[in-house]
Design a protein around this nucleic acid. Sequence first.
DNA 1: GATGAAAATGTTCTAAT
DNA 2: ATTAGAACATTTTCATC
Lengths: 147, 147
Amino acid sequence: MDEIDRKIACLLAEDARRSLADIGGVVDLSPSAVNERIRRLTASGAIQRFTVEADPVAFGQDVLAFVFVALNYEAGEAAFKDFIAACPNVLDCHHVTGGWSYLIKIRVATLSGVEDFLQQLKERRFLARSETMLALSTVTEKPFKPF
Amino acid sequence: MDEIDRKIACLLAEDARRSLADIGGVVDLSPSAVNERIRRLTASGAIQRFTVEADPVAFGQDVLAFVFVALNYEAGEAAFKDFIAACPNVLDCHHVTGGWSYLIKIRVATLSGVEDFLQQLKERRFLARSETMLALSTVTEKPFKPF
DNA sequence: GATGAAAATGTTCTAAT
DNA sequence: ATTAGAACATTTTCATC
């Protein structure tokens, strides 16, 4: 992981469709060398996958909410994590400092989707307490990119 | 935006390097037809860009924090938004319901990076109050994907 | 590790329906 | 909007340094 690797990762983050020749032009390497570096970055997990950024609104997921959860540990933390990891509406879930155990970021189609999500947590007995914050508008929202 | 478009977007979200022929095999369309649909999805903004998902830790951004901000409106909301949009450490920034004006998600190399970030907000007089939550561990973290 | 050239694969364009 | 096929470009492999 040197400066060239970082630069290649940055270029791919901006546009993953750039050709190896293009990238090679920027970092002064042959297409094959660039290819080999991308292969290594991918194999090591530094680059996790090639994907597309999609507009949630265009796909009907208009509502963004943050749910703070105090876990009911009797229900099992592992079961909670499994549920969260499998739920397509969950974009983020982190164990956090402060008065709550987890902070969860979800995208749903409508407000009732938020209620459905909370209901699912309740049904599975994961919830001791929770608090929900709705996002009214977004200034910026982007996945992590090397820089 | 029909079911086929959704499916194509899903497949690209999983792996943006799949060939047009591959995708066509799944949705029962010719490579050219798939290509045309991807072109339209991209042109309409439903697909915002082709990119790579990178591992923040591999790139030395180990610390994830959520910063709640009550804005000092005298400093100018537009200036705040400009600053936030331009800051590479900021992954998310949303105007939210509740006692805070904005919820900001940042990635920094070390804890002192959190302090630096808060210091920058202070220097620019954006801050009335703030509260910071550190992420201790991550259950899931992914950009929005159509499904 | 990197290179350059050959081989394999994928994409884009054109004409037609 | 979609298709087929030709023309074009890119990626991948491999022998070599």
